[in-house]
Amino acid sequence: MLEARLEQANLFKKVVDAIKDLVQDCNFDCNDSGIALQAMDNSHVALVSMMLRSESFAPFRCDRNIALGINLTSLTKVLKCAQSDDILTLKAEDAPDVVELVFESAESDRISEYSIKLMDIDQEHLGIPETDYGATISMPAAEFQRICRDLIALSESVSIECSKEGVKFACQGDIGSGAVTLRQHTNVDKPEMNVEINMSEPVSLTFSLKYLVNFCKASGLSNQVRLCLSNEVPLLVEYSLANNSHLRFYLAPKIGD
């Protein structure tokens, strides 16, 4: 059986909120290492990969591998019933028909119990190769969100160019063009504002802003976001969570014709 207690229901709410517009029906794969999810959007352009390690829960118990096939619209409806400071416990039997969600108020004696009917989802698990990226950029998540939201007003795609000058986000649209360049930057007082650029080779790739704006819904999960780029390879956008957990998005680059 599965029993996973999360001190902050809000964390799970934010994760589901960040991915629900990209993917609809997902398997939450539970085993003794934690709860993982991997799902591709319908157009096969973006992939979501989430790992909530068992250390993120207290307690965490999962005796066997259990795949919880859940519709994220249904999950969102139930998670709306949790207050943000509630404690969330996920429960399921070994061959479950339903997943149970229990919300406990830390301050009052209220206990709310919900269940969601599970679905059979036939999902192929894709191997994500270890990649030595040509450029890795860590920057404030809010800054990345702002750049994507600003540029989408002008164009549907953005080029991300990383060189020794820094990283340049540039777009061209019908009304004109826009570009934002960031250089490496260390803020001693506010390390969450740091911009760190590690580059082994110059990289230039073009991506759909619609997807990037969508990934940025995860900005509330982490102060910093990490962008990993190599020419001709999907972009990795990573939000690190506590206890070595993470939410990662992969996006196929646009290719010129």
């Binding site: 352009v45 992939l47 390879v233 999907p234 992969y250």
Partner: peptide, 14 residues
């Protein structure tokens, strides 16, 4: 317009 590669092929092949 530029097209986008199918991630399915990328991850399956690699």
């Amino acid at each position: 317009a530029p097209f986008q590669r199918d991630l399915y092929n990328y991850f399956i092949q690699s």
